[in-house]
């Protein structure tokens, strides 16, 4: 299904990840009043099993925001944070140092702040993507959960799995500058376009 994708196409997808994550990082930086850095995006074609091994493996517990993208291009989008980093962000946002996603029942205020954070960051990622491509895309309201990474990410593979056993993932990571850069503090944006939507994206950017 992906046999006509060239290295030029992959570069274009990287640029999408770059622009999206840069806008999200700027939004996050403004919200938390801290410096946010990002990595050069990775665009990879991986098997479902390989996808499960991202972010510390299928069983690692993470905070996940998921939304579907509808419109001219369709796909799934995830914002995945380690529990440690999510705690840190939310504590800062709601001024409550005792907040902890690991201690259910988690406070409504904290959950709602996380939901809103997900809204804002995915919104800035997607509006940058829409501006860049000229495609009209609409996010569904994001869902939030704290669970095993594999269980979360498999939701984004449902549409892809109807067509094949591999997925193209646009992976951008952001991190707080003063926290340093390691897997435990990274936030990942995963954009998983539906296989049918690559042509619309490439066409919009003149590389079809």
């Amino acid at each position: 299904m992906y046999n006509r994708i060239t290295s030029l196409h992959l570069d274009v997808l990287k640029e999408i990840g770059n622009i999206g994550a840069a806008h999200a990082a700027t939004a996050l930086s403004g919200l938390l009043n801290t410096k946010i850095d990002m990595h050069v995006p990775k665009v990879e074609m991986v098997s479902f099993n390989e996808m499960m091994d991202f972010v510390g493996g299928a069983e690692s517990v993470v905070v996940g925001i998921y939304l579907r993208i509808e419109g001219d291009a369709k796909g799934g989008m995830f914002f995945i944070l380690s529990v440690e980093q999510a705690n840190h962000f939310i504590r800062k946002l709601i001024h409550d140092d005792s907040f902890d996603f690991r201690n259910p029942p988690v406070s409504e205020l904290g959950l709602s702040a996380m939901q809103e954070l997900g809204n804002i960051l995915s919104g800035s990622y997607l509006s940058a993507l829409s501006d860049f491509t000229g495609l009209k895309i609409y996010p569904t309201p994001p869902g939030l959960t704290v669970d095993m990474f594999g269980a979360i990410i498999s939701f984004g593979l449902v549409e892809v799995s109807k067509i094949g056993d591999q997925v193209i993932v646009i992976d951008t990571t952001i991190y707080e500058e003063h926290m340093g850069d390691s897997e435990t503090v990274r936030g990942h944006f995963f954009l998983l376009p539906d296989p049918d939507s690559f042509q619309s994206i490439f066409k919009a950017l003149g590389v079809s």
């Binding site: 499960m52 594999g150 269980a151 939701f155």
Partner: peptide, 9 residues
């Protein structure tokens, strides 16, 4: 026999 991280599957 084992599988990890089952969500909707």
């Amino acid at each position: 026999i084992r599988t990890s991280g089952l969500g909707s599957c």
